[in-house]
Design a protein around this nucleic acid. Structure first.
Lengths: 228, 228, 228, 228
DNA sequence: GATGAATGAGTGTTCATTCAT
DNA sequence: AATGAATGAACACTCATTCAT
């Protein structure tokens, strides 16, 4: 008597799978990276609560058990993803070397960098949004990230000071608020693209729109920092 | 044709049980409002996936069943919350009557309104963030909200034109991008307060900081729109 | 602020229902009959477990509370439906007066009656099928129905005796088994029409098929009772 | 890129817990069969709507989750049960090889087979009854069963033709109607035993009664097919 | 290192039924 | 006689996680 149903096959591979089936992997590093990548996509798309461990495993082409073997739990995996993504961004910021540029170029570069980074790493937006929804519960928990505190504000402070000295930058600007505004202008456009597109009945993320927006952001910030 | 049963005598039990549990209300309107309020808090705090129907019911002081009675499903309730919150904001925007103010006052008023609205309605930030995480799935689904498309950009366009004519506003500004930037400056500060507070090891939402931020936002935008 | 959703409107009647809305009924007898009719349809279609009290009330155009007012419970309502349907059939059988006919005419009449009754009262089939699935739980419980025990077998016994005496009916026939076979031939065709239609890829209940089947049933039974 | 966690040490607890609960099996095939068997009993006894998933799991000695693991949903499990039961019956019919018997023996064998099959597989009766109550909703949905269309009617057609040729079977009989009547005589007796037992105040399913009934069915059909 | 089988505590949802008017 | 609001006990189903191999 034939059996009714077997558990839904995960990979629609060849029926009587031959000995080598894309490599039986057995490569710790690669498996972990595959899991991290799949997890980042899933967490970014659905948030921590909405993400499904099964989906991550499937997308990573790994057995669900491996996920626990390497990362301990869903929460721990989420933390690993967050640390990688957030740490990556902080690292790139540190590599900017704004101090080597003229003050106005430094500001412009920073604005453009922020904007471009979001273009290239959309998932960081979702991860950050998710984190903020829970009051940064995991960010707070991560020793790694807490120790990574940005020094960018100090860099900006020095840039502003140099600009003031040269008379190319307005006096009395607060480097933290400036940094927040630079971040805000880029972040919001991407983080809220979906609802804004509905609100304005217009596809905001087309390449053309994006270029307009980038130029606008630079314009706003430079207008602000330039003395009258 | 003979009928089955005669009405059974009711109320065999004790005449009146003690009035515990703050009255079972029995007021449709009030119950619905209580559910909506509790749901807004829960959805804002945990997101759609993370929110718990039981918690909403309990917080509303209502039986879980009533939630389904009035709203049909968790998703539908979420939509109702979203419509109320989002619609409320749009309505207040419409009531601003910016056209009655001088151009620069109108811009300043708008910046301050946006900022203050987020202060007074923190949950709209979380709801919007949640919506954007799912690609505005529910906002798109809501006929109510899709029909509510903001006309604020048109108002801004007229304000800008009037300002240009008077020479108090720079030429060639894009009203949509200006609106986005105004929104961004306020929104980001609140939406990302949690992660930013960790990143800068500093409590960003204190009243003092908030007032600074508000002034800064006005400053940035007015610097941008003012002709050189 | 407009309320989100109101409980799904049951009757899509006029928007601002005028004072008279089809009669506010207030007629006990009519309400009860409407409930019984709606309940019969629902129970026949879905069975006792599958039937929904809300659906019955809605179909009857009555408030759900009325259903409990008149019938006590879902089970009691089901019993009332069963008693009415089953009792109706037994009553019609009693009115057949087979004894007034010639023996062979009596048999033929009975076969045709059984068949035709099922045509006209499809729901009795479903109700009986449902009852049998639960081991006749409710039929057993009904004093009314237990006292209604058929005397039809006795009538058949006398018909067979008369026929034997005249030599037009085979000797030694068992009236109970004959009755069962007569019932079976008609009942099965209707009770299993759905699965049979699938099994034979052919719509069995068309009027033409039904007439063929009716003639066949008569043929089978008369062949059986006729002496060789 | 640094990796998050190293595999946590497992098995901190006591080495081996006592083997209660009849072994957790861990045999996919056996678990599935156990679930199918328990499900068949539960669905036959209560119908699809009345059946309880918890009961099935418990009777199968399996975790409720496994039921979904292997079969997807209650409906899918029901379908699997139906396919197995219905398919099993069709298979046995196919194995009858009626063509190898003399025409009258073939007919007699078929009547007896149908009757005996219902005796041995009472649940098929309930399952069919349930299916018919819903208009064969699931039977229709099953590709497996739709492709299993009985060829038995063709076999009967050939038997009748052979019998006619030999003069031992009456001319002009319809094989489909004959098959329906053969099925009906057996099926009805079992499907309606519960209500009939009440109606006649007599236990119909005793072994003695059953043997009488079996002989009666053969008698009715043979009387019908035999030429006068 | 890797896998399929198994689990228990929820989670959203449904339903018959009762309360207050 | 009639009704809308309210309830609690299930119910099907899901999910992160662990066991045995």
């Amino acid at each position: 008597m034939p059996l009714a149903a077997t558990p839904k096959p995960k990979r629609a591979g060849p029926a009587a799978r031959p000995k080598t089936r894309l490599e039986p992997v057995r490569d710790a590093e690669r498996t972990q990276q595959a899991i991290l990548a799949a997890a980042e996509a899933e967490f970014a798309a659905k948030g921590l609560a909405g993400a499904r461990v099964d989906v991550i495993a499937e997308q990573a082409g790994a057995n669900k058990r491996m996920l626990y073997y390497y990362f301990g739990s869903k929460d721990d995996l989420y933390l690993a993803v967050l640390e990688r993504a957030y740490g990556g961004m902080r690292e790139k910021e540190r590599e900017l070397n704004l101090a080597d540029l003229s003050p106005l170029d430094a500001i412009r570069t920073l604005v453009e960098f922020k904007f471009d980074y979001y273009v290239a790493h959309q998932s960081i937006i979702s991860l950050l949004a998710g984190e903020n929804l829970t009051g940064a519960k995991f960010l707070k928990k991560s020793r790694k990230l807490r120790d990574m505190q940005t020094s960018l504000v100090d860099v900006i402070r020095r840039v502003l000071a140099a600009g003031e000295a040269k008379g190319v930058i307005r006096k009395g600007l607060d480097p933290l608020h400036l940094y927040l505004s630079i971040s805000a202008l880029g972040y919001f456009y991407f983080s809220n693209a979906a609802t804004l597109s509905v609100a304005f009945g217009r596809q905001l993320l087309s390449e053309e729109e994006r270029n307009d927006r980038r130029a606008h952001c630079v314009d706003v910030i430079l207008s602000y920092v330039t003395p009258r």
